[in-house]
Design a protein around this nucleic acid. Structure first.
Lengths: 204, 204
DNA sequence: GTCTATACTCTGATAGAC
DNA sequence: GTCTATCAGAGTATAGAC
């Protein structure tokens, strides 16, 4: 079912992936059931299995889309741009992903928590390659004294950790903040301050 | 099986909780199976169910231990100590928890990812109370100009996010760093630099 | 293309022998 | 206290009518 040919196929395929995102992101691969996915999608279970040959296939379809979307903001970091502005823009885009696509973030988190059994190749391949490339860019900026000298890969980890936290631990964040708070707006301001100070090359 | 009375009971209870920690932390509640837990523990499934009445009970036993251990480092933050040193010590202890008890960290992460169905009360209660209390301490330190003015709760979130990332996303961290790295040692140095700069009250 | 019916396996839990 | 046997229900997947 890679290329939907009719309108009804397109609609059902989309409904299935949408439902699967709900269920897989909340319960992980093994905790998710086709019954639940089919119900959320508004289809019978056999009908779901007409569109995708197996549970595994549905999951794989979601994951293959995911990594691309997930890495786009990092890919967009321009080596020829102004260093601090480029990094800040990356932080902002990553936080927007957390805000607008929290289920995708949790799907990814679930996969990594489980030891990345279905993504290991992508992580050791595409992901590592891209990070290495961008770490080199960060290193060059540090050599030029444009930003503070820090271990570049850990700097990238810190951006991932801080932005994804607001999607993955949303329940905890909201419970602790209490009502009357907008987590993502507050996080945006906080992270801007944090990285402005961290990246500043002046002062220890 | 709250109070083991014989040596064999103590040993088996411990083996079950140990095995359950392995399995629940990797697959979440629904993804974990009693078969798997029993096998890892080296017991038959009925024998496991002699010690704990249900799957739920095993999980609950793990979680009730968890939150206490997890919050101890924050609880230990002393309002009468030297502010920067206290916060740094908290970061260090939290990172040590990630290094020494990664499965516990992932168990917690799984529970929150799933919407905290079995921990909501604890999070909205004990956890929130403690965070509110410590946020007040941080605010006082900011008022006294001892540390930079930042949203205190988000400062705490940032410590959680940055330290837990190295446990929860361990697979990704190691894959990206490649061989020949010690993630936790490097993280310790990096986070020390990060929070030193962030907390510094001087300079914007 | 979609549905009903169903095969077959896995999972949580119990009964009862030892 | 531990084991074998087993149950009822849920789980993935398939067959075949329409």
């Amino acid at each position: 079912m890679t290329k939907p040919r009719t309108r009804i196929q397109a609609r059902n395929s989309k409904a299935i992936l949408e439902a699967a995102l709900d269920v897989f992101s909340q319960h992980g691969f093994r905790g998710a059931t086709l019954d639940q996915i089919a119900e959320v999608a508004g289809l019978s279970k056999p009908n779901l299995l007409y569109y995708f040959p197996s549970k595994e296939a549905v999951h794989t379809a979601l994951l293959s889309q995911l990594l691309r979307t997930w890495l786009d903001p990092l890919r967009a970091m321009n080596p020829d741009g102004e260093p601090v502005a480029e990094i800040m823009a990356y932080v902002r885009r990553k936080l927007e992903l957390s805000r607008d696509f929290p289920r995708e973030s949790r799907l990814f988190a679930n996969e990594i928590l489980q030891g990345a059994p279905r993504m290991r190749a992508a992580i050791e391949g595409d992901l590592k390659t891209l990070v290495d490339e961008k770490a080199a860019v960060l290193s060059a900026w540090m050599d030029q004294g444009k930003i503070a000298r820090l271990p570049p890969v850990h700097l990238i980890f810190s951006i991932w950790a801080l932005t994804q936290h607001y999607a993955d631990f949303d329940v905890q964040v909201r419970a602790v903040l209490g009502p009357g708070h907008d987590p993502f707006t507050e996080a945006g301001d906080f992270l801007e301050t944090l990285f402005a100070k961290l990246l500043s090359p002046y002062l220890s």
